[in-house]
């Protein structure tokens, strides 16, 4: 049993399928007049956010509240962290308050792993994005959205385009989609692909137009200018010409193909407004699905005496 969700790589095919199936049932709760289940009553979920976030924090908060958990939101700004408190002391404080789960976002890759294995805290740790490492619940909600539109994921061709180097979303998606049997191609300029991408369970390419042929899913990544400390491409204009998704490129996709973006979007950079607002874009739906998927994760980790994930089926 794994009490934590730290990496998409920790999920077996059975685990991932269980989460997606559970999310399917929980999505129906969102359609009801009473959007609430009593399942996590009396449990405390702490949202520990050391980095700015809109949708992920709100999504986890909505998910925990729909399961009747008590939610404590902690953001580093305006807390003792800005006075220099360490992660350890913050964790010990949360432990003393009796947190059953800590949802953590941190600019340092590996911070959730440290929290989970340090012994500072007894609750479940859910990684909500750590540095340029992983964002497993985003990958799960992306897979959930793909499954809803394409019915199956196995054998589907998924093209992930853009700033792979800085993208925890891309990394988690590659790992999860490989488990689920999709064929993933990463497309980016050479400067925005990480070293060692050849060992990842996916293909990579520098040519967007060639990669889009036969694609079922096109996932555009945000160009993370806040993490860029060097010139990774000559100009914004050149980047969007070669790696941006515009109406012309979109029109060459198959009829059933969908366009995804983890948000927040740089409209006009990696994706044009026309594409972002088109029928093919499922970007808003991704946000809706995020709540159901996070409910499923919280339920499976916290709902029983023990986690339902990581069993030896």
């Amino acid at each position: 049993m794994t009490r934590h969700l730290l990496s998409a790589a920790d999920l077996s095919l059975d685990d991932a399928t269980l989460i997606l199936d559970t999310a399917d049932e929980l999505a129906r709760v969102s359609d009801r007049p009473v959007k609430k289940l009593p399942t996590l009553r009396g449990r405390t979920v702490v949202n520990l956010f050391f980095e700015d976030s809109t949708r992920t924090r709100i999504s986890f908060e909505a998910a925990a509240k729909r399961l009747s958990a008590d939610v404590i939101n902690f953001s580093a700004k305006g807390s003792s962290v800005s006075k220099g408190e360490s992660l350890k002391d913050t964790a010990l404080t949360l432990e003393a308050m009796g947190a059953d789960a800590v949802v953590i976002r941190h600019p340092a890759s590996g911070a959730p792993h440290t929290l989970a294995h340090s012994g500072w805290i007894g609750g479940s740790i859910v990684n909500a994005g750590d540095g340029t490492h992983e964002h497993p619940t985003q990958a799960l909600l992306d897979a959930f959205t793909m499954r809803r539109h394409l019915s199956t994921i196995s054998g589907r061709k998924v093209v992930i385009v853009g700033d792979v180097l800085h993208s925890r979303v891309a990394r988690s998606n590659v790992l999860l989609l490989a488990t689920l049997g999709a064929e993933v191609t990463l497309v980016a300029p050479p400067t925005l692909l990480p070293v060692g991408v050849g060992q990842w369970p996916c293909e990579h390419s520098y040519d967007l137009d060639a990669s889009l042929v036969g694609a079922d899913v096109v996932m555009m990544l945000r160009v993370q200018r806040e993490r860029m400390n060097a010139a990774f491409f000559p100009s914004v204009r050149e980047y969007s010409r070669r790696y941006g998704l515009d109406a012309d490129r979109m029109s060459r996709l198959a009829d059933h193909a969908i366009v995804m973006h983890p948000g927040p979007m740089n409209r006009g950079l990696e994706i044009t407004a026309a594409v972002a607002d088109s029928d093919r874009a499922v970007i808003i739906e991704q946000v809706t699905n995020g709540v159901s998927v996070r409910m499923a994760v919280l339920y499976l980790l916290l709902g029983g005496s023990d986690s339902a994930l990581g069993g030896d089926q």
Binding site: L18, D21, R28, L300, G303, G304, S307, A308, G311
Partner: peptide, 19 residues
Amino acid sequence: TMFRDDLRMRPARGLGRTE
């Protein structure tokens, strides 16, 4: 499933369908 009183006594399990 989510309304069972023994939910906390065993590992969480998959859900059935409410329709």
